[in-house]
Design a protein around this nucleic acid. Structure first.
Length: 269
DNA sequence: CCCGGAACCTGAAGGC
DNA sequence: TGCCTTCAGGTTCCGG
């Protein structure tokens, strides 16, 4: 499940392959990712455009084009972007061909992912909250986002309009690292807890980026390889296993329809 | 504004 | 073996 570290890894790996290349043709096998845009229009707005660079905005990948617009990819749950895969990839929804060879393949088992072309990339950024790795994400900024909210702290961490990039796995990991129970109301965190949570979020995300993301299920890097971040997960997807800190069995609860893993002893209510 | 639940999808895994 | 249920979770939409 691509979250910030996975999307960052994909962007970093694709950038050297894609920057400077020009779209030659596009093949669409499933129009669902395009939304309202027709296949014809999608192809028309891409072909002949040169890629000037890549960036990440929350969980969105922005492929910037010479004309000023951008191809915006959201992988949602099961999407992958693969560079020059050797064999035919199952669940291929779109293929992008470039001049002077080169092929980018978009696969997506569950068809939640989206491909769009955006003229003004600021519109993406405007809809999203603070990037947790940005310098303006301070303990004070986090405190402000949590204040006045009765929702479970985990639910607030998942709000992309507040903080952009944290998903289910890293919310659980960050709350464990900060020793905070995921269900407690966001507004009831002490200043000390907010400080711990702020540091935990940054530590967990940075470490996962170093490990090239987590491949719990379907995630793959553009080179087809799996990430290694999940090997160092303490609680996420580890229900029943011993807590690495105290040995207590990791518990599973459901918060906002999301599977939530935590240590009942290290993260008391 | 705040909050929580349904819907969108499909394959893997586990139970009986 | 085979059928049925549950699980996975990013985002949008809707109702209270």
């Amino acid at each position: 499940m691509p979250e910030l570290p996975e999307v960052e890894t994909i962007k970093n790996q694709l950038a050297p392959h894609l920057t400077g290349r020009t779209f030659k043709s596009i093949k669409i096998y499933d129009t669902r990712p395009l939304g309202n845009l027709s296949e014809k229009e999608f192809g028309r707005r891409l072909t002949g455009q040169k890629i000037t660079g890549l960036s990440r905005c929350g969980k969105y990948i922005l492929i910037h084009l010479s004309g000023g617009s951008a191809l915006v990819v959201h992988l949602r749950m099961t999407g992958s972007l693969l560079w020059n895969p050797r064999s035919a990839e199952p669940f291929t929804r779109a293929e992008f061909f470039f001049e002077n060879k080169g092929r980018l393949v978009f696969t997506d088992i569950r068809r939640f992912g989206t491909l769009s072309i955006v003229e003004d990339t600021c519109k993406i950024k405007d809809r999203l909250g603070i990037d947790p790795l940005d310098t303006c994400f301070t303990p004070q900024a986090l405190q402000k986002l949590l204040s006045g909210r009765k929702s479970p702290v985990k639910a607030v961490l998942l709000e992309q309009e507040l903080i952009a990039g944290i998903g289910n796995m890293y919310a659980d990991e960050a709350l464990f690292a900060a020793r905070i129970h995921p269900a407690i109301p966001a507004q009831s965190l002490s200043t000390g807890e907010v400080k711990r949570l702020h540091k935990a979020i940054q530590d967990v995300l940075k470490k996962a980026i170093r490990n090239k993301g987590a491949s719990v299920r379907n995630y793959r890097c553009p080179d087809g390889q799996a990430g290694r971040a999940h090997e160092e997960f303490c609680v996420a997807h580890r229900g029943g296993e011993p807590c690495p800190r105290c040995g207590t069995a990791i518990a599973r609860a459901v918060i906002r329809q999301r599977g939530t893993y935590y240590c009942p002893s290290c993260q008391p209510v």
